[in-house]
Structures are given as structure tokens and as C-alpha cells.
Amino acid sequence: MRTEPLRIAVFASGSGSNFQAIVNAVTAGRLDVRIELLVCDKPQAQVVTRAEAAGVPVYTFKPKEYPSREAYEQDILEQLQAKRVELVVLAGYMRIITDVLVQAYWGRMINIHPSLLPSFPGIHAVRQALEHGVKITGVTVHLVDGGLDSGPILAQRAINIERNDTEASLSDKIHPIEHQLYPEVIQSIADGSIDLTWNQWNHHESQITKMG
């Protein structure tokens, strides 16, 4: 039984709509976590403004100033450890994650993706769904394992694709689902409904309670 809120860090690169949904859920009392840090690779991104408005500490960096991904991730890791972050939440973070962070937060790093994985991994998931003519797509929350959207699935939610949908219109329908599902999953991790078995989880096996 937890005696204090789960300490999380959110990673984002852009407008930060999923970050804002998490903040809103905390403010409304639907999400019992403490957002210890926003990590952003673009200091001018809108998500930084959102974090400052919410009173969330911000760590920004410029990848080009580092010799490698591993080098800037080592700096990030030090920030996470200093704030005793327990769960890393990727929310539109457009950088490849290396073993520096994956191994340090194995089984404690999650991502949200706009498709029903394993279908359509990668950055153009909505476009791929339309191009393939599928009738249903959705949103997936999964553990990060260092592969391309390949980690164990924690939760999914489906949405119908209409005949006249475009990439823009389908994205507009997916975003509200993301904003609802991600805080729900984080809360389920915080209250133990989703058991990540943080000390035992390995590359292939986990004891995870899936949400419908």
C-alpha cells in the first residue's frame, strides 16, 4: 500500500496535449501522482510553457550539443535519480531511447501510441492505418523495451475509421481517447491495479493486468 503519490517524469517534444491531460487529471483528483519533472529536447516547445504554467519543474536539452544519445541520456538519468522518479511517461517524445534509460527504468517506462499495436508502429501510424484501409484503429499504452513500439501492451482502446476520414480528422478523434486512457493507465499503475512487478520484470515475462 503506497503512503505517498507515485513520482513520475513526463517526456515530451511538442505541444504537450498528453502532458496537459495528465496535469488536468492530477488537478481534478483523478490521478494520484506527483509530476516531478518534464523532460523536453526542444526548449521552445509549447509543452515547456504548459509545464511552467502548471508549476512542474522542467529539464530541457539540445541533443546536438552532445556527442551521442547516450551522453544526453546520462544527464537525464541523473535528473531522474535526483528526483527519485519511479515511472517515466513518454508523451510525444520524438527521440530514440537508448539502453542508458531503458535499462535504468526497465519495466518502469511507458509510452502511448496512436494505433492498435502491433499494427502500425512508428511515427506515421494514423496515415498507415488509412493507407491500409483498416476499419478500426485506436490507442495503445505499452511498456518501453528499446524496440520500435514493441514492448508489452498494458491497455488499448479502439475507434472506428469512417469512410471519409482523413489523417487530420482521424488524429482529431484519436487525441481525446489518448487524453482519457493515459491518465487512467497511470492511475492504475499508481494504485496497483496494473502490476508492473518492477523488481522482477524481464525482457519477455511480466505480471501485468490489462485494462479493457
Rank of each mutant, 00 (worst) to 15 (best):
N111W: 01
I35Y: 05
T140Y: 01
H142G: 01
A71F: 10
Q156M: 06
V89T: 07
S206F: 15
H204N: 13
K64L: 13
H179C: 10
T140H: 02
L154D: 00
I123N: 10
G29C: 07
Q74E: 15
N164C: 11
G147Y: 03
Q74V: 14
A104C: 08
V47W: 04
L117P: 00
D75R: 12
E86H: 10
K64W: 14
D145V: 04
W198Q: 14
P57N: 04
S119Y: 09
L37M: 10
H203S: 15
V139Q: 00
Q79Y: 12
N18F: 06
K64Q: 15
S68C: 12
T197I: 12
G138Y: 00
S171F: 07
Q20G: 10
L181R: 03
A82P: 05
S206W: 12
Q20V: 10
I208A: 05
Q44L: 13
A155D: 02
R108V: 05
E184M: 09
N202E: 15
S193K: 12
A155C: 09
P121M: 04
G192L: 06
K135L: 10
K42V: 14
H179A: 09
L87R: 03
P114S: 03
D32N: 13
G16R: 05
L117V: 07
A71V: 11
E36T: 07
K62Q: 14
F120K: 00
V26L: 11
Q44G: 11
K64R: 14
A158N: 11
I208N: 03
L117S: 01
T197Q: 14
V102A: 08
D195E: 14
L80E: 00
A125R: 01
Q103K: 12
N160K: 13
A12I: 08
H142Y: 06
N111R: 08
L130K: 09
R84E: 13
A12E: 02
L170Y: 08
R2L: 12
H113S: 02
I161R: 02
S13L: 06
Q44F: 11
P57E: 04
I8R: 02
I110L: 01
V139G: 00
D41C: 05
I159Y: 05
A125G: 04
S206P: 13
Q180Y: 12
L101G: 00
Y59P: 05
I110W: 00
Y182A: 06
Q103L: 09
Q79L: 07
E36R: 03
E205L: 15
V102Q: 08
E4R: 11
V56L: 10
G192I: 04
G55A: 11
K42R: 15
A25Y: 05
T49M: 15
T137V: 07
P43C: 09
T98M: 07
I153F: 02
S15W: 06
S68M: 09
I161V: 08
T60S: 09
D191I: 02
S13H: 06
F120I: 03
E162R: 10
K62M: 13
Q180D: 14
V56Y: 08
